[in-house]
Design a protein around this nucleic acid. Structure first.
Lengths: 99, 99
DNA sequence: CACCTATATAGCATTGCCGCTATGAGTTGG
DNA sequence: CCAACTCATAGCGGCAATGCTATATAGGTG
């Protein structure tokens, strides 16, 4: 099969599938991260190509990431953060403290 | 080809390759996350199998993750967090504020 | 000792992120 | 109008993470 759909369809489908809660949340998280990075990039007056060059990736990869096209991996996040003089924080915070 | 090496060798090799800074950092982050999850799991008196069942994965996957065997993807983190009543926080924090 | 449980690994298939190039659409400036 | 620039997207190959099952190891317990 494989039936490749483009990443925008993929993202939208993920966002609307109630069955896969963790996929939904991860997709939303990816989207928010994309918005954040876009903001930081624009704050510097950089183009996607600029950021891509510094982060060691291509413009298309940056565009895909910023639009939440894929759920990014931690190494990619690290590279983007580094290019933007930022740090990546990943934490697991208990939702239900010791009662 | 593919010359598969086991994940422990993979992790150790990553940790000792200075060239790939973001891979190194991601690997370290993965390790720390593994330790965190292990702590939370043990805090509940759960076995790896217990956590795996609730998180919808297998015991082997949990073991691999806890040992930092691979750099986890966000969906996997979400699933583990959910199983442990926790939230995943991923943030990009600027290292150099607007001068 | 045998037996059971818990964890660590191995080996392999599948999935999906990320790499690349090329191109389309929109905007701006000559 | 045309050229240049910016961003969005398509299509595809490579590879890493994850899924699975099976097994090895270690520790208890009878």
């Amino acid at each position: 099969m494989s039936e490749r759909e483009n990443w925008r369809e993929l993202r939208d489908r993920r966002m609307s599938e109630p069955g896969a809660a963790e996929a939904y949340e991860a997709t939303r998280l990816a989207y928010e991260l994309g918005v954040t990075v876009r903001g930081m990039r624009e704050g510097r007056g950089w183009t996607q190509s600029d950021l891509a060059r510094v982060a060691g990736m291509t413009q298309s990869a940056v565009a895909r990431f910023e639009a939440g096209g894929t759920i990014p991996t931690l190494p990619v996040l690290k590279r983007l953060a580094r290019a933007l003089d930022a740090d990546v924080e990943v934490r697991l915070t208990p939702r239900a403290p010791a009662a």
